[in-house]
Design a protein around this nucleic acid. Structure first.
Lengths: 154, 154
DNA sequence: TGACAAAGTTAGGCGAGACTAACTATAATT
DNA sequence: AATTATAGTTAGTCTCGCCTAACTTTGTCA
């Protein structure tokens, strides 16, 4: 089930873009080797992806040179990274999922959820994080609820 | 980013399995033509998938014969379909997402979310659906919250 | 029961995205 | 500055999942 995207970017290319974005944020520059390591792919795979992204005008690529995002590359990457954070935040802060598990699941789910759902998920996380009438945080309430539900397994 | 799965089933094969499961539920039998239609693929793709699933012992397949799930096929398919329903239910009943959008997103997200997250999502949907102290359903509260948040766009 | 329609299969091919092996360019060290 | 290590690229291959065209089997109906 390969899905046509409006932005014409495959899941794979979105991942590259996102990682370049994160690397730029950390060290102002993305090195091919680091991209490969972060994504868990071999170096030639990175070269191939960079060429594709360059053709789409999303990265500035020159053989043996440093990699930077173009303006539209930054925009695209930020969109993907934003999804990632919204999803991960929901998993961690609301569902109480382990950070590492949440991180990995968010990596995959970010390609599955469109703007309608992402927007609602963001609002919902915001909503549920707030203190409600009872003066007790709902995420905490849920943790206790879940503990009760599963006490038989503990 | 192709992901290794513990069950050794690709996203694609999980989709076939799930659709066969649903077709069996409706008419006791899955016809190749209907699988193709449901998944939006050409008929030869179905033949190929059925052979793979048969090799894994998940479907009973004979050329030109009807397709049924084996016991382990049912188990696998039920697991996937279960995920699907939990995710869709959260989208629709909690986030208030349109049913069609939720359906499609769930189709993709079901491959992204592992048991730790699914289990919590199920509990959470259960939890949040219940009436809380204020006597008002939280999903409803969220709808109002969201309406307030976005009233500027309306 | 024979002809035709519908369903399913086979054969061959294509693109995406990964890999390894071998090569080239850049950087670092002395 | 020459050597060596590291980074990056090229070339070629593989698998997966899809496709179309052509063929075979099964079902229907006059």
């Amino acid at each position: 089930m390969v899905v046509a995207k409006s932005n014409n970017l495959s899941d794979s290319l979105e991942d590259y873009l996102e990682d370049i974005f994160n690397l730029e944020g950390k060290s102002d520059v993305a090195r091919s080797k680091d991209i490969a390591k972060l994504l868990g792919v071999a170096k030639p795979s990175v070269t191939g992806a960079l060429k594709l992204l360059a053709k789409k005008g999303l990265v500035n690529y020159r053989p043996y040179g440093y990699v930077t995002l173009t303006d539209s590359g930054v925009a695209e990457a930020a969109r993907v990274a934003g999804k990632h954070n919204i999803i991960k935040s929901f998993f961690v802060n609301i569902l109480g999922v382990d950070a590492k598990v949440a991180q990995e699941a968010a990596c995959k789910a970010e390609h599955a959820l469109g703007p309608a759902i992402i927007s609602r998920l963001l609002d919902f996380t915001d909503f549920i994080t707030r203190t409600n009438g009872s003066g007790s945080d709902l995420a905490d309430k849920f943790k206790r609820f879940r503990k009760r539900q599963h006490r038989i397994n503990k």
